[in-house]
Design a protein around this nucleic acid. Sequence first.
DNA 1: GGTAAGCCTTGATCTGTATCAAAGGTCTGA
DNA 2: TCAGACCTTTGATACAGATCAAGGCTTACC
Lengths: 272, 272
Amino acid sequence: MPFYIDADQPSVTSLSDMRIFMEAPELKSIHCDECPIRHRAVCAKCESDELEQLDRIKYYRTFEAGQPIVWAGDRMSFVGSVVSGYATLTQTMEDGRTQMVGLLLPSDFVGRPGRDSAAYNISATTDVVMCCFRKKPFEDMMSDTPHIAQRLLEMTLDELDAAREWMLVLGRKTAREKIASLFAIIARRESVLANTGLGVKNVARAASFDLKFTREAMADYLGLTIETVSRQISALKKDGVISLQGKRHVIVPDMYRLIDEAGDDSDGGLLV
Amino acid sequence: MPFYIDADQPSVTSLSDMRIFMEAPELKSIHCDECPIRHRAVCAKCESDELEQLDRIKYYRTFEAGQPIVWAGDRMSFVGSVVSGYATLTQTMEDGRTQMVGLLLPSDFVGRPGRDSAAYNISATTDVVMCCFRKKPFEDMMSDTPHIAQRLLEMTLDELDAAREWMLVLGRKTAREKIASLFAIIARRESVLANTGLGVKNVARAASFDLKFTREAMADYLGLTIETVSRQISALKKDGVISLQGKRHVIVPDMYRLIDEAGDDSDGGLLV
DNA sequence: GGTAAGCCTTGATCTGTATCAAAGGTCTGA
DNA sequence: TCAGACCTTTGATACAGATCAAGGCTTACC
């Protein structure tokens, strides 16, 4: 199948970055220096000798959209970074209720050093390329070189903050606020300036993005049903907070309005 | 006011541990070797020379039950560990809706190295003793000695797991399951064997604990109202899942039953 | 002993979201 | 071109939990 080209994520993985993977089926050949996530992933603080060492123990794997990467409880022989694409962490109850508990974007880390079975289901939402390290050599490197552990700590603290923001969304926000919050988060992370024909004055307030999620994935993210997700999206559209091109492309004419709908007191700082 | 004696937490801070603090108003005099959280806090992996170094930069602070420790947005000049008592992290929306996003028990770490304002409200639920380090010297030590950062990484990863479990509770569980989940978590962490008169055979399944929280705090933890919390506790009592001594002491005759009510597929392993 | 302030419980009613149901789009493959 | 699968939307109805309201219990203080 053709490789998924994510034209809406120019800052993260540009088209030319992706070509490296598309045109090199032998993925192992990409050197860390040329890696699109080099400066944001777990390797961000590594010196060039450390990078060499990582380079030797790494290998690439690809996962097709919709496919599981690991199941909760499975033995995990590797850890690694998402190079391109989206993946999700989900928890499931016996009766099938499921809750998404993590969202993995390019540069995010997968797996927990020191634990050998997965705690959550991980699955690919879009096609995903991962840079993997066998667990043992990676853990050895971690205890030798502090740069990896330092970066991992920073990243984990950021994830914890994100999880706590999300807890407020799950516990206290209405369905409409939940949808607005989700859109605000996505827009913050990967919006492109929207050409909405609103004129120069409003360009800075506008944004647009492709929704990588089905209604079901959004429902699992927000603790809602797909029907409620659908209704609230329709309502936001009717009220002019967003507009849609097709079912998956969202245009936000005024980010401040969207953030207001999300009920966040964290203000326009989001747009910086 | 007299120091709060937490007789239900023998494994964490024994009565005699507490006397150290009660009888020594000049708290600074306690040496790390005698510290009740020495082997579980951020200092757990430190060698004796590192401990000496920490000893020199630490100081103790106490907070009364109900008092704020820091407000979100405030400048935070210190980081530290909870030595005894309970504290909570909460987020608040403009209109007053609040969600608890973290629970701080003895040995838990407060503050984020590298950030200088608090992201959440932190307040003391019971009387709290904290072991504090001024931020700058602590950060300097962190970059010199890997043991602190290593331990902090472990602890942060554990907190992230707890936050994700909590997200499932908030997003997908019913009110009754939420209460049962909360009780199961508390019981797991600090239950004492209950003398419920059920006979030897059932002792291992039984547990009891003091609720340190008001109904309001539980509601903020679980994303419910106080009325719903109250009703669900009454219902669990009526159904024999728990019984109460006064309003705050909970007896669980059968932990398996409680865990079943919580809807967790994570099974009896919790009791180990 | 009386009263005020907190906290908790319980009842009545309302409402936001889930559930049940049907139908419209879009894409794929025969 | 059609059938089938999947995703999405929309309507009707049900229900869990919120909201509004009242009263009980405990503790503190005058």
